[in-house]
Amino acid sequence: MPHWLSLMVDSFWPLLYAGVVFTVPLTLLSFAGGLLLGFAVALARLFGPSPLVKVARFYVWFIRGTPLLVQLFVIFYGLPNIGIVLDAFPAALIGFTLNVGAYTSEVIRAAIASVPRGQWEAAYSIGMSWTQAMRRTILPQATGLAVPPLSNSFISLIKDTSLAAALTVPEIFQAAQRIASVTYEPFILYSETALIYLFFSSVLSSAQTRLEARFGRHSSPLGAAG
């Protein structure tokens, strides 16, 4: 076996392990948390009282206007200065969740707002409450509109988790750096790392395609004049 190939094979399992144990959980957990947060922020901005709207707007403005890496550094390296010490993984999880929450709140807000006003009126006119209208007719339609952009955010997130390496989270990229620093073969290792990210994002993209097909079925905006 040529040297480069045995190097790749040797490092394959540690990299895959880092992906399965750190990258994937970090991605899934922060995306789930970010979605919940984004949903709450979207509702606050659309329907909340004005102070809440202001807080929500500030949050989105702040997160979208600052680099993710800087946000992660503030949380992990900065907060201990004011007495809040977090382990690397929870710090990364909080950072990614806040970041995902800001971006997805904009997507969810736009999707809910783009469900035609007539759908609310029809729902109210047949005696639904706000909650019923939201759950039974507005959200199902908004979901169809939100799934494609949300799954794009999800794919971006998988790749963005490589920034957690800078917080010492032993995810894929961190593992790669560690191996590269002892083997002195950065070209081979980082190329392999790229392939491993490619593998994870491809697997998750195909899940995305299936999700879109499922939610897009009867709620395409083209069917809107109904």
């Binding site: 035609p116 007539g118 759908q119 009126e121 029809a122 729902a123 039974r136 007719t137 199902p140 339609q141 169809g144 009867h218 709620s219 069917g223 809107a224 004049a225 109904g226």
Partner: peptide, 9 residues
């Protein structure tokens, strides 16, 4: 309604 407003979903 003019635009019918059937629930699309």
């Amino acid at each position: 309604f003019q635009q019918f407003n059937l629930l699309h979903n």
